[in-house]
């Protein structure tokens, strides 16, 4: 099978089974060279499993995957020569200094000790970590650790970089820092595969998106395409009194037969509706029942609402099958 040169990644019918769990259930993923490709899905959707197979860390149960035309199982060493990986858990030795961690990362890529040291110092400077460079990593703040970790994935320029949920658990400031770093990484024409469970992250960062759930692709396209592809709009209702949300949900489900989903914000309701008339009816029903509405929005659905429309659940509060991935 010869690969398409415009594609950095191509998988066919990728399956990974752990015991009873099908972590990947026939995943077809294509990633164009030179793009930031977002893989979006809830916890347990199979994002990390897919990434580990592509990074030659796991073997698929069936199906095949190619990175720049190289089979990830049979030509693992050819693949490893072209990829970099920043996993969900940080690849740092906390009993070494930041500088030493970067030197180690450079040597693992084949840099001799002296060039590795020069590169490490350059990276510390660029990431504004020079002052703490000679301190043990275990004394770093969370944001500093993540910066060193991302810096370590930049010791050499990778043609394809895997970033597995790079901003999970970071405060908003560190998150936007990491986003900016990721944009720098593609300036040299590199390709990035980014997994995330944050819709705003996927929306902001990715050129192309693949939405996955239960180990399968549920949708693909650019963020803009995905947002307009669904005819169904979503009405977002902000209730004055959060305690009446359950009541409002039941009422709307009965009155207009709409799919209703509760948001993580306790006073917010997401209502799937086919057109604006139905939205008016829904608001009317609420008014008749005496449930006051603080605010509502209708219009182009966000990725959040697209995901809800496609899968029937939101990306947020979902931890199914997470153990299966952890075991990997």
């Amino acid at each position: 099978m010869t690969g398409n040169p415009a594609l950095a990644i191509e998988t066919h019918e990728l399956v990974k089974v752990y015991g009873e769990t099908r972590a990947l259930d026939g995943l077809d993923l294509t990633v164009r060279t030179g793009t930031i490709h977002g893989v979006l899905g809830p916890n347990g959707a199979g994002k990390t499993t897919a990434m580990k197979i592509l990074a030659t860390l796991l073997q698929p149960t069936s199906g095949n995957a190619q990175v720049f035309g190289h089979d990830v199982v049979r030509e693992a060493s050819a693949v490893r020569r072209r990829i970099g990986l920043t996993g969900q858990t940080m690849a740092l030795d906390e009993d070494m200094t930041g500088l030493q961690n970067l030197i180690l990362a450079g040597r693992l890529q084949g840099l001799r000790h002296r060039p590795a040291t020069a590169r490490a110092e350059q990276l510390l400077e660029a990431f504004e970590l020079t002052e703490v460079g000679n301190r043990l990593v275990k004394t770093y703040s969370g944001g500093q650790k993540r910066r060193i970790d991302v810096a370590a994935s930049m010791v050499v320029t990778h043609e394809l970089l895997f970033l597995d949920e790079p901003t999970t658990g970071l405060d908003p400031r560190s998150r936007s820092e990491v986003w900016q770093m990721i944009r720098v990484l593609v300036q040299d024409g590199g390709t990035i595969l980014l997994t995330t469970q944050y819709l705003d992250e996927a929306d902001q960062m990715a050129d192309d998106l693949t939405l996955i759930d239960h180990g399968r692709v549920v949708a693909r396209g650019t963020p803009a395409e995905l947002k307009t592809s669904r005819a169904d709009g979503v009405l977002e209702v902000l209730l004055t009194d959060p305690s009446r949300r359950a009541e409002a949900g039941t009422l709307l489900a009965r009155a207009i037969g709409a799919g209703v989903d509760a948001d993580s914000d306790p006073s917010r309701l997401l209502v799937k509706i086919p057109d604006a008339d139905q939205a008016a009816r829904a608001l009317g029903e609420l008014a008749r029942a005496g449930i006051s509405v603080e605010d509502f929005t209708l219009g182009q659905p966000s990725l959040d609402t697209v995901f809800l429309a496609l899968t029937g659940h939101s990306t947020l509060d979902d931890t199914r099958e997470e153990e299966a991935e952890v075991r990997a």
Binding site: R81, R107, A126, V150, V156, T157, V184, D188
Partner: peptide, 30 residues
């Protein structure tokens, strides 16, 4: 933004067996 000024660096040839071993020996000693 941090990292903006990082110039790209071509990946050197894959390290040899001895160099790989020395890298981990170095890590143990530091």
């Amino acid at each position: 933004f941090p990292g903006r000024s990082v110039p790209s660096l071509q990946r050197p040839p894959a390290p040899g067996v001895l160099f790989a071993c020395r890298t981990f020996a170095w890590r143990t000693l530091i």
